[in-house]
Write a protein that binds this DNA or RNA. Structure first.
Lengths: 179, 179
DNA sequence: CGGCGCATGTAACTTGTTACATGATTCC
DNA sequence: GGAATCATGTAACAAGTTACATGCGCCG
């Protein structure tokens, strides 16, 4: 539980950061398998600080409106490692497009076709971005001990998005023949 | 929004059902891309009834403790169709295993290996079940106008689970060489 | 006669989103 | 000077989970 806490702890294990930077990284690098909102993030940072798992180091840098940089404390690292060792228990996904596909005999083939085409385009963009990220990562693979494992995550994204595109193609062909 | 409402409306569009039956179907047929809890389901049924989108028909059948069967009303069908025509906007997924993979340089390769093996086994089971469902569905494909589209949903599950297994295999090989 | 499956429901809680407020700096 | 980006935060709301309560029928 409290998965947001572990994302924060994990990112801070790489380097000290502000809440804003954490959000940016999640939106950029985790976007194909994770999301967080500021409404979750900032309160989580406060709570982790209060509990001594992280600490605020560089507050109120010149210019910036009270910019707060957080750092991981030993206790935070310990809890992060404990969590990493626990079996994965939550695998939540909700794919609205499959729900719509399932009930789509109630609308025209063209309507459903539009949905699937939008789905394909989204995941084509995702795939392109992931392939770029992979190339970049491979060129600096020895720079950080974490990189080979991050590459496994990127490869997951690539593999799954390719599967999405395969399905989209088949489905568009099927719906096209119906229409 | 209120996605739960549309799942309920959709299932009732196929035939009248009790809340319990709706839950069973979601757990069985939708489990690889959707989930609902009773705590969401029963209040949703009440709210849809109050708003006149569905109606309670066969209450309190002999024996059973106040069994309530619900039916879709024309207004409910209309709202369902409106929703089906709207573009898909929510694609929520949160894959804890990728989060753990990303930060797994903080634990041993063996630990992460265990997680990935559990993941593979789960999705092997899912894949087997989906292939069975596909065979069954193909044998009765003409029985209901909905079946060809349900088959597209099952095929999504198969395609994606195959991708999961491909990734699991590669990742287990990588982590094995590390350990 | 005990356990399982059918069956419904609620309350407390946790989790997550959205809208809003604020305000400085940087780039054009 | 205005837009975009950096930056933090909260309140109200929406969504979702868990634990619990209740109780019948059926099967062994």
């Amino acid at each position: 539980m409290r998965q947001t806490e572990f994302v924060v702890l994990g990112l801070l294990s790489e380097s000290p950061m502000t809440g804003y930077q954490i959000k940016k990284i999640i939106d950029l690098r985790f976007r194909f398998f994770w999301n967080e909102s500021y409404g979750q993030l900032y309160p989580t940072l406060k709570s982790l600080t209060r509990r001594g798992l992280i600490e605020e180091t560089g507050t109120a840098r010149k210019g910036r409106r009270n910019q707060r940089t957080y750092e991981l404390k030993p206790q935070g690292l310990k809890e992060l490692q404990d969590w990493l060792a626990q079996p994965v228990e939550r695998e939540s996904l909700r794919l609205e497009i499959l729900l719509k596909m399932y009930f789509s005999n109630l609308v025209s083939a063209e309507t459903m076709l539009g949905h699937v085409e939008a789905f394909r385009e989204k995941h084509q963009r995702d795939l392109k971005w992931l392939e770029l990220a992979k190339a970049e990562l491979e060129s600096i693979i020895d720079r950080h001990p974490n990189h080979p494992r991050v590459l496994r995550v990127v490869d997951f994204g690539i593999t799954v998005n390719e599967a999405y595109l395969k399905w989209s193609g088949e489905t568009i062909r099927y719906l096209g023949s119906e229409a």
